[in-house]
Write a protein that binds this DNA or RNA. Sequence first.
RNA 1: GGGCCUGUAGCUCAAUUGGUUAGAGCAGAGCGCUCAUAACGCUUUGGUUGCGGGUUCAAGUCCUGCCGGGCCUACCA
Length: 570
Amino acid sequence: MARHLITSAIPYINGIKHLGNLVGSQLPADLYARYLRGRGHEVLFLCATDEHGTPAELAAAKAGQPVAEYCAEMHQVQARLAEGFRLSFDHFGRSSSPQNHRLTQHFAGRLADAGLIEDVSERQVYSVADRRFLPDRYIEGTCPNCGYDRARGDQCENCTKQLDPTDLINPRSAISGSTDLEVRETKHLYLRQSAMRKQLSDWIDSKADWPILTTSIAKKWLNDGDGLQDRGITRDLDWGVPVRRGDRDWPGMEGKVFYVWFDAPIEYIACAQEWQDAGKGADWERWWRTDKGADDVRYTQFMGKDNVPFHTLSFPVTIMGSGEPWKLVDYIKSFNYLNYDGGQFSTSQGRGVFMDQALSILPADYWRWWLLSHAPETADSEFTWENFQASVNKDLADVLGNFVSRVTKFCRSKFGEAVPEGGEWGARETALVADLEARVRAYERHMDAIEVRKAAAELRAIWAAGNEYLQAAGPWTVIKTDPETAAMQTRLGLNLIRLYAVLSAPFIPDAAATMLGAIGAEGAGWPGDLATALTALPAGHGFEVPEVLFAKISDEDRAEWQARFAGVRT
RNA sequence: GGGCCUGUAGCUCAAUUGGUUAGAGCAGAGCGCUCAUAACGCUUUGGUUGCGGGUUCAAGUCCUGCCGGGCCUACCA
């Protein structure tokens, strides 16, 4: 059995995430983690909240709270929602943890010792009224190119021209609207990514099996213009990891913090320490240090495409540049965006369905199934209520839910609530087993390759095979003339429920648990040989008819939700 | 502007990386079944693979030019 380290891109702290965020990283990561655990592998699945940066400070200010308090609260909110969606993190950490502070400072020290950090003096816009330096996009003004009066300091959204904040006419703070701005000199640390360009390039080139989306973004950044640019890794903010060189002060950097994108990926590592410190495990370094047992770990990261540059370039520079034997990522699974009904999901504009709203409408499994079976793997995909209703009703209620229902109810009415005895498999059963053997192995291949949509399609076909078999076998007719054979057919049907529960658990864990509970097979393991797996429930084994697994979404429900979520979240 | 991705049936997606007659699910039509959440099964209609050239014995796949959609473009994270 292999050991798998899995991390999901860590969600930003400033609010509740929407379904697009969920399907882009945390949900597929959970699918993979659950699958690998199901196969018996040792898994460490980590996620955390990303808590630093200007937006967090502003969100806290807006909420009228100290930023630390705000982040602590929002972390709890996100943790509860993660539980609600059954995200099976081994630990859900915080990038503001003391462990991450220490580790971030440690990495910075190592990188400085290796000559990969340099001081750069630069001029930045400072807002006197806000008493802070403003990131480019927090400065608004009139576009010198097209005259649009709400152009941002990095780019004009109207004419798409890239801008420098000092280009803007009548610049003002996007935070307060103040025009009391001045350009001040400030010193920052830069990570000399350019010095490792060759090493990174060779490394990316060696990853021929990565999704095109991942490697093409990485190569673009490596080769665009003058090649990979160095990157500022410090900011003039209060909230963050104070700039220190390991455990020493960093002269000239007093009062500054590391840039959120420097400390956020390091939290993947620190999170393992948090996991251990929380008493959930031991010896975290055997997951992260190749000199301490991690050389047999396979490390897989999940993220939306916007995160790819940081995971293919900046974080690897941090790891490689440290000169220490930290585990590098083995596979990066990246996703496109999920759109909402003709436009984008938007956190800032409150457009779409958010995690808390989703759970207030329907249980997690409904969302998990739709989102995963429509994961934006090759291109952006789109959520519509019609499609959601159709998929849920057909796949979950009709194909799977109704199968469980018809088998258990038929058995109860004809044989009672125990697996019936008698009869032997014939040609039809042997053919079914052969068909399922091929399908289950195909399902495993897709899951191993993290081909999410293909895996979902195969799983659905496996469910459908049960209905096809029942229809062809017709135990409700056979029982009139040959009760023994009908008993055998019904017994196989009950065993199929057990099989389906195990196979489906990564996608729909709650329903899978209900199914296993109903047939009294809670400890059922991953199927090896299908003939064996489908005889696991012996004659005489008791079961119960479960409640309806999936209720259908009515046209009225759909219309009501469609209307409710047509506007913006307030 | 530059780069990348994408365009296949009414809808959502496949197509073993250049190889028979382009396949699934949904929706539509017909038939069957009656155990089941009016569920299930079988059959079936539906495609000039965005458009035009080119390479090749062979192109959805490669090249090229248009047209459309999307993303990224380094100080939001």
